[in-house]
């Protein structure tokens, strides 16, 4: 068989190259710091392998050699195409370019969701003002009895739970609520609107309920330090969720799946920062809000300052836009 003589010579010549490439891939997995020559060699090996694979396929499309070379090709492809890990530059791009852009696109939705939230709060407020008994829908029996005795459930909070524990549990809860409100947008936005509406009604009705017993100024004192950021984050997360639902309802020229993926890509940076701000709000709610030693003025100042920071970061106003040179960095989220 003269054909197989050629095959043997080819194998003899190429086999060491494949073994070398396999070894290079293994060391590359173990140690990512490599000099340019090594990386260049890896890339060359990958290209040569693609040609060898085509040849092996023409000899025996489903043979063992073809299958081995295919597996090696997949490994080399991953090593060559793995995105570079540049944490700092891509984070900067995310904060300064992608986040403000995403928030700009989301602005009308945020305003609508905030309006929906306020409307629900107003509804809850009116509901409990007119029918005070309905407070039982939103508050536990224990809370109601406490308020009837003239005590707010937030009063002795720090005597029962240490602030760190309080902050942790609030943080976890808020992050879960925000992420769920976002992800439930995939149910054509209905899940999001339900969660936002429910939270709005709770806020309104609880305020109406404590007002009935003349405790509303104390509840305000508890809420003012962390409330502004927390409620804003809930509205922004809700807006991101509504955007997902909108993509499914009105996909435009894209398929529904493609539209959903596009909306998801747009809203991911926003959600990452929502989570970060909920961590901050949780810390405030654990350490500042329930503390009887901190004056009302300080709490108001904390609330205003934290909201200003939130607004400045989310809208990109915190960074001078003109001085930021557009990097060639691809953001982590594109």
């Amino acid at each position: 068989m003269s054909g197989s003589d050629g095959l043997r010579r080819w194998l003899e010549k190429r086999q060491p190259a494949w073994e070398k490439l396999a070894r290079a891939l293994r060391t590359q997995r173990d140690n990512r710091r490599q000099d340019v020559v090594e990386v260049h060699r890896l890339d060359e090996g990958y290209r040569a392998l693609a040609r060898d694979l085509a040849l092996a396929r023409s000899i025996d499309p489903k043979g063992r050699l073809t299958r081995y070379l295919e597996a090696l090709y997949v490994e080399a492809h991953e090593a060559v195409h793995k995105p570079a890990r540049r944490l700092l530059p891509s984070t900067l791009t995310l904060v300064r370019r992608d986040l403000p852009a995403a928030m700009g696109a989301l602005r009308p939705t945020v305003l609508s969701v905030a309006a929906w939230f306020l409307l629900s709060a107003l509804f809850g407020w009116l509901l409990v003002m007119v029918y005070p008994d309905l407070a039982a829908l939103f508050a536990s029996q224990q809370m109601i009895e406490g308020v009837q005795d003239g005590e707010l459930w937030t009063d002795g909070l720090l005597n029962i739970i240490p602030p760190s524990m309080l902050a942790l549990s609030i943080m976890t809860n808020n992050i879960l609520v925000a992420l769920t409100a976002y992800a439930l947008g995939a149910l054509f936005g209905l899940g999001t609107l339900y969660i936002i509406g429910l939270n709005g009604m709770m806020l309104g009705s609880v305020f109406a309920f404590v007002r009935h017993y003349g405790l509303d100024d104390r509840l305000f004192e508890f809420v003012i330090a962390h409330g502004p950021v927390e409620l804003s984050v809930i509205c922004v997360a809700g807006a991101a969720g509504v955007r997902l639902g909108e993509a499914l309802l009105r996909p435009g020229n894209l398929s529904r799946t493609a539209a959903l993926r596009h909306a998801v890509g747009q809203t991911t940076p926003v959600m990452c920062f929502c989570v970060l701000f909920l961590v901050a709000a949780g810390l405030i709610e654990g350490y500042v809000s329930p503390s009887p030693n901190i004056a009302l003025g300080t709490k108001v100042a904390v609330g205003v300052a934290s909201w200003v920071v939130f607004y400045a970061v989310m809208s990109g106003r915190a960074w001078p836009a003109a001085r930021y040179r557009e990097h060639k960095n691809q953001s982590a989220f594109s």
């Binding site: 197989s4 043997r8 194998l11 086999q15 396999a22 043979g63 050699l65 081995y68 090696l72 997949v74």
Partner: peptide, 16 residues
Amino acid sequence: RRAKAADLADATTALN
């Protein structure tokens, strides 16, 4: 898919 050295050895021995 993992490229195993033994697979290559088997395949080339047979082809050779």
